Simulated assay, not measured.
Amino acid sequence: MGRLLGKGTFAKVYYGKHLVTGESVAIKVINKDQVRREGMIDQIQTEILVMHLVRHPNIVELKEVMATKTKIFFIMEYVRGGELFAKVAKGRLGEEAARKIFPATNQRH
């Protein structure tokens, strides 16, 4: 695990690199005790299930989930460009900015 990429209420996300393949990944580390106290275990399980089922070029891929007694680790595709929330929290995006963030995968002509 490397540098901190971002943090939220229940998790921190770190940059990581697969030691064998050299692939860059994002590692979301969730504190189990905090999630339990807030009654969010079911939501975490749902997030894992949905991320395993959904495969789309514009959705971050969940590669693996691991857990210890105190932490849950989501190993995910690393995507450059920062947090999406930081980009949309400032207000409505213009069309050109939105196209850069959300490129069309199926353009109709």
Score class of each variant (00 low, 15 high):
residue 1 M to F: 09
residue 1 M to S: 14
residue 1 M to Q: 10
residue 1 M to N: 13
residue 2 G to P: 05
residue 4 L to C: 08
residue 4 L to I: 10
residue 6 G to K: 04
residue 6 G to S: 03
residue 7 K to P: 09
residue 8 G to M: 05
residue 9 T to A: 12
residue 10 F to T: 06
residue 11 A to N: 11
residue 11 A to G: 08
residue 12 K to R: 12
residue 13 V to W: 01
residue 15 Y to S: 11
residue 15 Y to R: 09
residue 16 G to T: 08
residue 17 K to P: 11
residue 18 H to P: 10
residue 18 H to Y: 12
residue 18 H to S: 11
residue 21 T to C: 04
residue 21 T to K: 02
residue 22 G to K: 05
residue 23 E to P: 01
residue 24 S to C: 13
residue 25 V to D: 00
residue 25 V to H: 01
residue 26 A to H: 02
residue 27 I to R: 00
residue 29 V to T: 06
residue 29 V to Y: 01
residue 29 V to E: 03
residue 29 V to R: 03
residue 30 I to L: 04
residue 32 K to C: 02
residue 35 V to M: 04
residue 35 V to H: 01
residue 36 R to I: 12
residue 37 R to M: 14
residue 39 G to Y: 02
residue 39 G to T: 06
residue 42 D to F: 11
residue 42 D to V: 09
residue 43 Q to W: 11
residue 44 I to S: 02
residue 45 Q to T: 14
residue 46 T to Y: 08
residue 46 T to A: 15
residue 46 T to W: 07
residue 47 E to G: 10
residue 47 E to Y: 05
residue 48 I to F: 03
residue 49 L to I: 12
residue 50 V to E: 04
residue 50 V to A: 07
residue 50 V to L: 10
residue 50 V to M: 07
residue 52 H to C: 15
residue 52 H to V: 15
residue 52 H to N: 11
residue 53 L to N: 15
residue 55 R to L: 10
residue 56 H to V: 07
residue 56 H to T: 02
residue 58 N to F: 03
residue 59 I to P: 05
residue 59 I to L: 09
residue 59 I to E: 05
residue 60 V to C: 05
residue 61 E to T: 13
residue 61 E to S: 13
residue 61 E to D: 12
residue 62 L to G: 00
residue 62 L to Q: 00
residue 63 K to W: 03
residue 63 K to S: 06
residue 63 K to Y: 08
residue 64 E to Y: 11
residue 66 M to Y: 07
residue 66 M to V: 12
residue 67 A to T: 09
residue 67 A to E: 12
residue 67 A to P: 03
residue 69 K to F: 02
residue 70 T to C: 07
residue 70 T to V: 07
residue 71 K to R: 08
residue 71 K to H: 05
residue 72 I to H: 00
residue 73 F to T: 01
residue 73 F to P: 01
residue 73 F to A: 02
residue 74 F to Q: 00
residue 75 I to G: 00
residue 76 M to G: 02
residue 77 E to I: 06
residue 77 E to C: 03
residue 79 V to I: 14
residue 80 R to I: 12
residue 81 G to E: 06
residue 81 G to F: 01
residue 83 E to Q: 09
residue 84 L to D: 03
residue 84 L to E: 08
residue 84 L to H: 05
residue 86 A to D: 15
residue 86 A to F: 08
residue 87 K to Q: 09
residue 87 K to N: 05
residue 87 K to A: 03
residue 88 V to G: 03
residue 88 V to I: 13
residue 89 A to M: 11
residue 89 A to V: 10
residue 90 K to E: 07
residue 91 G to Y: 05
residue 95 E to T: 15
residue 95 E to I: 12
residue 96 E to I: 15
residue 96 E to N: 14
residue 96 E to T: 13
residue 96 E to H: 15
residue 97 A to R: 10
residue 98 A to N: 08
residue 99 R to F: 05
residue 100 K to W: 07
residue 100 K to S: 11
residue 104 A to V: 14
residue 106 N to W: 11
residue 107 Q to Y: 14
residue 107 Q to K: 13
residue 108 R to V: 15
residue 109 H to L: 13
residue 109 H to F: 15
